[in-house]
Design a protein around this nucleic acid. Sequence first.
DNA 1: CTAGAACCTCACGTCAACGTGAGGATCAAG
DNA 2: CTTGATCCTCACGTTGACGTGAGGTTCTAG
Lengths: 123, 123
Amino acid sequence: MRIGEVAERAGVSVRALRYYEERGLVIADRSPSGHRRYPESAVERVKFIQLLYAAGLASKAIREILPFLDTLVATPRMTRRLMDERARIRARIDDLTKAHDRLDELIRLSAEYENTPAACPAT
Amino acid sequence: MRIGEVAERAGVSVRALRYYEERGLVIADRSPSGHRRYPESAVERVKFIQLLYAAGLASKAIREILPFLDTLVATPRMTRRLMDERARIRARIDDLTKAHDRLDELIRLSAEYENTPAACPAT
DNA sequence: CTAGAACCTCACGTCAACGTGAGGATCAAG
DNA sequence: CTTGATCCTCACGTTGACGTGAGGTTCTAG
């Protein structure tokens, strides 16, 4: 598969894919002319990378975790990293929950001084 | 109160406080010689700012929300911003939860191939 | 065979929230 | 009055995940 198709199907930019290769997150072999060739699996792999990036993992952490997808064998280092990052994410969720509740509080407060309805469509 | 004390009590750097002033998040008046003077309330204000920064709000969004703490009166714009950010945070929590669960899955998988105990101290 | 789409490699630009000196003034204590 | 801690204002450096041309090659449809 060519880079443009991978980009579109994974929902990222072509530049991002080149960047991932530079960071060692995705390996692509090349056509004789030098164009990148990706296997089908690359799409899912990139989506997974996006998931981890969105969760705030650094590319270094991702690089340590990704090989697991290929080998399905976890080194102690990988396991540790997985658990560390899980803990980090959990802590982050706690922080966000605090901020969320605080904003909630303010919104309810503001509803007392304004005519603005406190009801939120997404609640 | 001087900037150093505010910094220590709020748990941020002196540089951060100057930056917050530059961004219009904290107003400090000056001594005749030009040193910043903060009211007691600044400590709580800065902690709140930290909470919002930690939740991923941009300084622009914080600037729109902060006046509420002073006036306790919400303009429609402020209310909208509050609710927008609450929604953003909620969405962010969802993303993180997805990533968390995915990592959890991998950790359980890796426990099958390694002797690494799956038990997590923080669970 | 030719045009336009898609690809390539540099390599500098971006943005946010500060960090980090440089160089100098001010404050609090003895 | 001196000294060490604290403060001031520039102003450039940092980090990560790309964006954005520049300048050139390759692929593909007609």
